[in-house]
Write a protein that binds this DNA or RNA. Structure first.
Length: 274
DNA sequence: AACCAGGGTGATG
DNA sequence: CATCACCATGGT
C-alpha cells in the first residue's frame, strides 16, 4: 500500500533531490513529470521530493520505511552544521553554496560495488543505462512499482556467460562476474566490511579482479557509510590540482567523503563550465 | 615505470 | 559525421 514518510531536516535548503540523486553517487533515480524523483534503492522503490524542512517519501514498503529511507537519505545528520564547518575553507565554501542541497546517500553495499565497477572509464549517462538494463534483465520485481530491485550476487553468479552481452558493458563484465562469484561464495563478506579497520576493508574489496582503490573507496563511502573515505576520480583530481596544490585540509578528514561529494558536483559544474 | 587496450556511447563541433 | 572523453584497472 502506498504511504508517505516525512523525514524532518534542520533547514529547508538541506535537501535537493536533483543535486543529491544526480551528482554521481546513485544511478537509479530519475525526475518525474509531476516534479518528484523516483527510483529504486536496493529492493525498495520510492518517489521523493523536498518539502520545506523535510524530505517527503512515497513508497510501497511493507514496513520499516521511515527507518530505511531515513538512513538512506542520511536524515539523522545535521548538514547545516557540517556545511558551516566546510565553509571555513574558501573553496569548499563555494562548493557548498553551489550544491547546498546535496546529501551523502547510504546505499546498499552490493549495489554500490557493482555500480562503481560499471562506472570505470565511463560517463554517467552510460553508467545509468547499463545499470538499468542489468536490473531490468536480472533483478527481482518490486510489486506495485513496475520496477525491479538490484540483482543478488547469487543471481549474477549463476548467469551463463552470454547473458551478460545485453548489458554492452564491455570489459567490465569480467569484473562483475568475479565480484558476484566471490561474494556469493562467501570469499568476501560485504556485511563484515563495516566492522573492519578502513585499510583492511579496502584491501578486502581490492581482492576482487577489477576493483582498485577508487572503486573500493566509492564502495566504502557510498555503500558502507565510511565518511572518512575520499575517492579520487578524474574530477576530484582536477579540483585538487587546481585548488588544493598543498593537499586537502586535514581538519576535514573525518567527513572528507561528504566534502568530496560537494567538490565533485562543484568541479563538474564550475571547472568545465558545464 | 610509462604506456595501452578494454567497448561503447553521449556530447561536441 | 569524426572525434573526444568518460567517477579505472590490469597487463605489457
Amino acid at each position: 500500500m502506498l504511504h508517505r514518510v516525512r523525514l524532518p531536516l534542520a533547514a529547508a535548503g538541506d535537501f535537493d533531490p536533483a543535486q543529491t540523486l544526480d551528482c554521481g553517487q546513485a544511478f537509479r533515480f530519475t525526475p518525474t513529470a509531476d516534479g518528484w524523483w523516483e527510483g529504486v534503492a536496493g529492493q525498495r522503490y520510492c518517489k521523493v521530493r523536498g518539502q520545506g524542512a523535510a524530505i517527503e517519501v512515497d513508497c510501497f514498503c511493507g514496513g520499516g520505511c521511515a527507518a530505511h529511507w531515513g538512513d538512506y537519505f542520511d536524515a539523522g545528520r545535521d548538514y547545516g552544521t557540517l556545511k558551516q564547518e566546510y565553509s571555513t575553507d574558501p573553496v569548499l565554501e563555494k562548493a557548498v553554496r553551489h550544491g547546498a542541497g546535496i546529501r551523502l546517500l547510504h546505499q546498499d553495499t552490493w549495489e554500490t560495488l557493482c555500480s562503481f565497477i560499471i562506472s570505470q572509464n565511463n560517463h554517467i549517462a552510460r553508467i545509468k543505462g547499463i545499470i538499468r538494463t542489468l536490473c531490468d534483465s536480472f533483478g527481482p520485481p518490486i510489486p506495485g512499482s513496475g520496477m525491479r530491485g538490484f540483482p543478488a550476487p547469487e543471481t549474477l553468479a549463476a548467469l551463463p556467460v552470454d547473458s551478460w552481452d545485453v548489458l554492452r558493458a564491455g570489459f567490465r563484465v569480467k569484473y562483475l562476474r568475479d565480484a558476484a562469484e566471490k561474494v556469493s561464495r562467501g570469499q568476501l563478506d560485504l556485511a563484515g566490511l563495516r566492522a573492519l579497520p578502513l585499510e583492511d576493508a579496502r584491501q578486502a574489496l581490492m581482492q576482487i579482479y577489477g576493483v582498485g582503490p577508487k572503486v573500493a573507496d566509492c564502495t566504502l563511502l557510498f555503500g558502507c557509510a565510511r565518511m572518512e573515505c575520499f575517492p579520487r576520480d578524474v574530477w576530484i583530481k582536477r579540483v585538487l590540482a587546481e585548488y588544493y596544490p598543498g593537499g586537502f585540509p586535514e581538519r576535514f578528514a573525518g567527513t572528507a567523503g561528504i566534502a568530496q561529494q560537494y567538490l565533485f558536483h562543484y568541479g563538474r559544474g564550475a571547472l568545465v563550465e558545464k
